[in-house]
Design a protein around this nucleic acid. Structure first.
Length: 103
DNA sequence: CGACTGACCAGAT
DNA sequence: TATCTGGCCAGTC
């Protein structure tokens, strides 16, 4: 049965991403059981509380880039966290070939 | 109701 | 990988 909400499925999938890896919005949507809901994923992440423990920083767009304006606090914060995870971030970009989580 | 927007995507080239 | 294009979905005005 499906007593859990779509949001719960999303959070569960997000929490399952191991340090040192990243996933794309579309990939996370699929992992959550909602293919083609990439935009919805973005809206949900935006709703996350400031102090959340979920690894929201491990989510980047299909181009391998951080989906925040270059130079913004958010972009900087995400890059900072990714580096702490051991992920190389160059010009707000990450190599999906090297760091994308197989799932 | 239609138009616009956004932490987006996959396919073709 | 990069660029271009059409598509998708939920919210907001």
């Amino acid at each position: 049965m499906d007593s859990i909400s779509p949001e719960q499925r999303l959070y569960t999938a997000l929490a399952a991403i191991p340090p040192g890896y990243v996933v794309t919005y579309g990939q996370l949507a699929s992992l959550s059981g909602w293919p083609r809901r990439a935009r919805w994923v973005g809206q949900q992440l935006k709703r996350l509380p400031t102090g959340t423990t979920l690894p929201w920083h491990r989510v980047i767009n299909a181009a391998g880039k951080i989906s925040f304006p270059v130079g913004s606090d958010k972009a900087h914060e995400q890059a900072k966290r990714l580096r702490q995870d051991g992920v190389e971030v160059v010009h707000g970009k990450v190599s999906l070939a090297k760091y994308q989580w197989p799932g």
